[in-house]
Design a protein around this nucleic acid. Structure first.
Lengths: 248, 248
DNA sequence: TGTAGGTATGAATCCGACT
DNA sequence: AAGTCGGATTCATACCTAC
């Protein structure tokens, strides 16, 4: 396993999550935003070869109606369960898992979390604030969700402050994004609060590496896995800039 | 079917939801906050009385129990599906369903919504703000959720403004509540925005009747069903005060 | 009317003791 | 043993009281 990039806090592997997760060192947290598209990403019935492209919930045109054909959702469940099961084997006791999801995949994601052997502890909300597409007479879909849980009993930490369960931060503008589903750094900083300082954070679907930057910046270590080399490059650049104190 | 209370906008029936829903006139929306049967990781915790589960141990003011809050998850799914199926039979095309739930029952609730034949359209978030019970080193559980959907295709309405998908409002103070789980009126006003003006709103688990007050106040009609007579009385009082313009 | 300080409490959760 | 029960604990926030 040769890293694509490495510094004292961050390691990036260029490769496929399902294959690489079992080879990771023991870690303290898995924080990730898997591709949760609802169509066209599964080739054949081999779920192992799934990660092909990222689709943003932001870019979807009008919402598809629920048709009763759960094929994609079932595959998604199986696939998430696979790598969460693998992750559990490499997780220290008390480790935290944070899985980003949209409203449509939230029930599937909590199922997969539990099917993978993790204890589901709750749902946190990223409120993207209202500026999204207009929807006539319907609740605006302005939130993403984090299904979170632990490996075994919770590790009790006295922080002296409460970690909000709802976090408000606008999504980055198109121009400021390297990746179509890129999260604002503030959101990832918020998530880091739920993880013990100094711990090792794993993101098997790294994308442009916001998780790694937030982890490093907040005194944690991180490992990122990404199948597309161009994102490995972007993330490596962001992490090394962070080294020099240039980020943000 | 003899009403417990009736005025020109509001009707209250004292009785049991499963039996009464099939007898209702055709309606435009079902908005309700069923007993979540939640309150704890462990079965034992969930089987406690509602006061033991939901009221802080050091709370001075006495609180009233409410019933129907001890189902396990399987039963909860079956039960919600039952009355949502019945409701669909009395729902006009394009009707809206809004089911309140907490994080733990959210996946079960969206399953039940769909199992009952409704089309799941999204999740709205009531952010209770950080005035919530803290949990050391964990995301605060400060939100409740609304699983919402429609009976058939959405009825397109031009509102001229967007309905937020995340709504911030602190839970009412202990002293200002008649029911342990009473919602703030503002929250119900927000929900009413998703329902056509003048429409008939049904709440089969009325409690202290906030849904009815919000419906009436916003120019809609409402039917409430409640199994405990004490809450029928409270709701009737609130609705009649609203008639006289005394509420709020 | 304003400001500062004290107090009560939340649709929890955890854990140990007891039946 | 598995199931029940009860007490301790967390802190941001709204509200009340006192100056």
């Amino acid at each position: 396993m040769k890293p694509y990039y490495q510094d004292d806090a961050v390691t990036i592997y260029h490769g496929e999550a399902l294959g690489l997760v079992p080879l990771l060192p023991l870690f303290d947290a898995i924080v990730t935003d898997p591709p949760y598209s609802t169509g066209g990403m599964y080739r054949g019935d081999r779920m192992q070869s799934t990660v092909a492209k990222y689709v943003s919930s932001d870019t979807a045109a009008p919402r598809q109606e629920f048709t009763g054909d759960n094929r994609d959702q079932r595959s998604y469940l199986a696939w998430v369960t696979l790598w969460m099961t693998a992750a559990l084997q490499r997780a220290k006791a008390g480790s935290v898992a944070c899985l980003f999801t949209d409203w449509r995949q939230l029930p599937t994601t909590t199922d997969a979390l539990q099917a993978g052997g993790w204890i589901w502890r709750g749902v946190a909300v990223w409120d993207k604030t209202l500026k999204a597409r207009p929807a006539a007479g319907q609740f605006t879909s302005q939130a993403e969700y984090i299904a979170w849980g632990t490996c075994g009993p919770t590790e009790v930490r006295q922080l002296g402050y409460q970690i909000p369960g709802v976090f408000r931060a606008p999504a980055p503008d198109n121009a400021d994004r390297d990746h179509i589903t890129q999260k604002p750094l503030e959101v990832m900083r918020w998530v880091m609060d739920a993880i013990a300082p100094g711990g090792l954070v794993v993101d098997p679907f790294m994308g442009s590496g916001t998780t790694l930057v937030a982890a490093k910046e907040s005194g944690r270590r991180a490992i990122g896995i990404e199948i597309e080399e161009r994102y490995c490059e972007i993330a490596a650049t962001r992490c090394s800039q962070e080294v020099l104190g240039l980020a943000l």
